[in-house]
């Protein structure tokens, strides 16, 4: 047991909320064994369609004291944290940029020559964001059901549904019945985005159902292994 205590450990590292609007603050909290350092950088993934990310100014507030940091596309902010357990707030200063970007917040605990890292990606979304909800299917006779709780840890509580549709989510002519927040609708490919779920939370129970098509049955009953829908969201 004492040997284990010699290693750097990250007991807790959270970023809340995990998905933020353009000017939202996030609360970063940690508890580690070892010397903690926070690293922050933005990233544009290859093939993600984004251009070069514009610089942003981050305001980091800790114990009531504010510090400004300018974060350019390839820079990294390194913040020695001192305390083994504490929290701070990161907020982006309002500017004209509306990049849809991922912010990397990385905690590294060091003890001796050994490091223990953990990275949390925080998607920074514009006021109107898009995404998907989906689950693996469970067959029930000729019906395929994909259902479950949409994880609040992914979207937080600040986004609500504007529309749902099948666009981008399925290239077949499959019809999907959607149940969520006590509302049920049938979606067809090519239909305009459905506003029936407007204002409902993105989190919570979703159920997607579809029937095996003649094409599926011709392939030994092999339908899709998962079902998903495209969602348009609005930041509260």
């Amino acid at each position: 047991m004492l040997l284990a205590a010699c290693q750097p450990r990250i007991y807790r590292f959270t970023v809340d909320p995990p998905t933020i609007g353009n000017n939202d603050p996030v609360r970063v909290s940690w508890k580690v064994a070892g010397k903690p350092t926070l690293l922050i950088h933005d990233i544009g993934y290859p093939n993600s369609g984004g251009g070069r990310l514009s610089p942003v100014t981050l305001v980091i507030t800790r114990h009531g004291k504010e510090d400004n940091f300018t974060l350019a596309a390839e820079d990294t902010i390194r913040l020695p944290l001192g305390s083994k357990a504490d929290s701070l707030e990161i907020r982006k200063k309002p500017d004209g940029h509306t990049d849809d970007r991922l912010r990397y917040i990385r905690l590294v605990a060091v003890r001796g020559k050994r490091e223990s890292p953990q990275t949390i990606e925080v998607p920074v979304r514009p006021d109107t964001a898009s995404g998907q909800v989906g689950f693996a299917v469970v067959p029930h006779g000729d019906t395929l059901i994909a259902a479950g709780l949409n994880n609040a840890k992914t979207w937080g509580d600040d986004y609500v549904i504007l529309t749902v549709s099948l666009e981008h989510a399925d290239t077949s002519n499959r019809v999907i019945e959607v149940d969520h927040s006590g509302i049920s609708r049938v979606l067809h490919r090519g239909d305009p985005p459905d506003e029936s779920f407007k204002g409902t939370p993105v989190t919570g129970q979703w159920t997607l159902k579809t029937l095996l098509t003649p094409e599926d049955k011709a392939k030994h009953g092999q339908g899709p292994t998962g079902l998903s829908i495209f969602i348009l969201l609005k930041h509260r």
């Binding site: 993934y45 989906g134 290239t171």
Partner: peptide, 24 residues
């Protein structure tokens, strides 16, 4: 095959849909 966000590559976790991505 591009694009990586094809239904055939989708993985699922608690409502989230995950696709292959190229490491930066």
């Amino acid at each position: 095959k591009p694009p990586p966000n094809q239904a055939q590559y989708a993985n699922y976790y608690e409502g989230g849909v995950y696709y292959p991505f190229q490491r930066p």
